[in-house]
């Protein structure tokens, strides 16, 4: 399966990556090889095989609805580039 430059541009945009033209060139080639590699799976005959949602054969893992302590606010905010001690501060975003 060939990968076009336009497709890589779109994926980059969705991932919020800004790429230089040379990077785009390089990544298109590299990504194409990755996709090609995975594409080998398409050679398998999967007729009559149930789709697999998860690699681990485990279902119904639950936890009880019991409150556990949360982090102190100071600790929760500690890794943030910008805070006011109460909130995370981020560059202005448009209303969704």
């Amino acid at each position: 399966m060939a990968l076009t430059r336009a497709e890589v541009e779109k994926v980059a945009l969705l991932a919020r990556l800004e790429l230089e033209p040379q990077e785009l060139e390089l990544l298109t080639a590299q990504l194409a090889r990755v996709v090609e590699y995975v594409d080998q799976l398409a050679q398998l005959d999967t007729q009559g095989v149930e789709p697999l949602a998860h690699a681990v054969e485990l279902t119904n893992v639950f936890r009880p609805d019991q409150v556990q302590p949360s982090l102190p606010r100071q600790k929760a905010l500690q890794q943030a580039p910008r805070t006011d001690g109460e909130f995370f501060r981020v560059p202005a975003v448009l209303e969704p």
Partner: peptide
Amino acid sequence: FCGCRNQFGAPPNTLTCP
């Protein structure tokens, strides 16, 4: 998906965990 309390109106960012 975590044990933080599901509650409206708590002081901001006091109900979080990793």
